Simulated scan of single mutants.
Amino acid sequence: IDASGSPQAVRSGIKAVGPAGRVILVGLGADDVELPVSFIQNREIWLSGVFRYTNTWPLAIQLIADGKVDLDILVTGKFALAQSQQALTAGKQPGQLKAVVYPGR
C-alpha cells in the first residue's frame, strides 16, 4: 500500500511485492508514473488504485486486527533519534522499504 504518491516509492513498493501480490495506490501522486511493467506481468501482480482515503481505514484496521496483514515486515530499518539522518536516507539503499526512528533508543 503506497499513500505517498512518490514515483520512486511506487516503483520500490511494486518491486517488494511477491508473486500474485497486490499493490494499492492510495490518494493522489504524480499524474504519470513509470512502472516496471515486465516485473508486474511476470509476477502476476494486481495493481489498483483507491481515490484518497474514502472507506479505506476501517478495512485496513480490520485486516491488521485479524492478522491478515503483517506490518512488521515493512520495517527494514530501525534507528535511534541520533541516527535520524541515516533513517532519512535509508530508503535509497537496495532492499530498504520503511525506516522507523525510535526516540528512546
Rank of each mutant, 00 (worst) to 15 (best):
A90W: 14
G27S: 02
N42L: 15
L97D: 06
R43K: 13
L81H: 04
A87M: 09
L63A: 15
Q41N: 12
V37K: 01
I40D: 13
I14H: 03
P103C: 11
L88G: 07
G29Q: 03
A9R: 00
V10K: 01
N55G: 06
E44H: 06
G67L: 14
G29K: 01
L81K: 01
Q86G: 00
S6L: 04
S38G: 08
A80P: 01
A90P: 08
D72R: 10
G95Q: 10
D2K: 00
Q96S: 14
R52D: 14
S6Y: 01
F79D: 09
Q96P: 06
G91C: 10
Q93W: 03
L35N: 02
S12C: 05
P19D: 07
A16R: 03
D31K: 02
I45E: 11
P36E: 03
A3F: 04
A20N: 07
I61W: 07
I73P: 00
I73K: 14
I14D: 10
L47V: 15
G13W: 02
K78W: 03
L81W: 08
G29R: 01
Q83H: 03
S12R: 09
V100Q: 03
S48K: 07
A99F: 05
A90Q: 09
G91Y: 03
S48L: 08
A30V: 01
L88S: 11
G49L: 09
V50C: 10
A82H: 01
V26T: 01
E34M: 05
R11I: 09
L25F: 07
S38E: 10
K92T: 10
A65Y: 11
L97T: 09
A60W: 10
I14F: 04
S12W: 00
A30F: 00
T56Y: 11
R52V: 12
A99L: 07
W46E: 14
V75L: 07
G104R: 03
V33Q: 02
L81M: 15
V69T: 08
D72Q: 12
I40R: 05
V33N: 03
D2L: 02
W46D: 15
E44K: 05
I73S: 15
T89P: 05
V69P: 04
S84W: 02
L97G: 05
A82S: 15
L97C: 09
Q41I: 12
Q86D: 15
I40S: 12
G67K: 09
K78L: 13
K15H: 08
Q41S: 12
F51V: 12
G27C: 04
L74T: 11
I1D: 06
A65F: 08
S6A: 08
Q41A: 14
G91R: 05
R22D: 08
D32V: 06
G5R: 00
I40Y: 05
I73M: 13
R52A: 15
R22T: 12
R43D: 13
Q93H: 09
G27N: 02
I1A: 07
A20D: 08
A99N: 06
K98L: 11
N42C: 14
G49S: 11
K92I: 02
I64R: 08
G77E: 13
V26Y: 01
V10A: 09
Q93M: 11
S38C: 06
G49F: 07
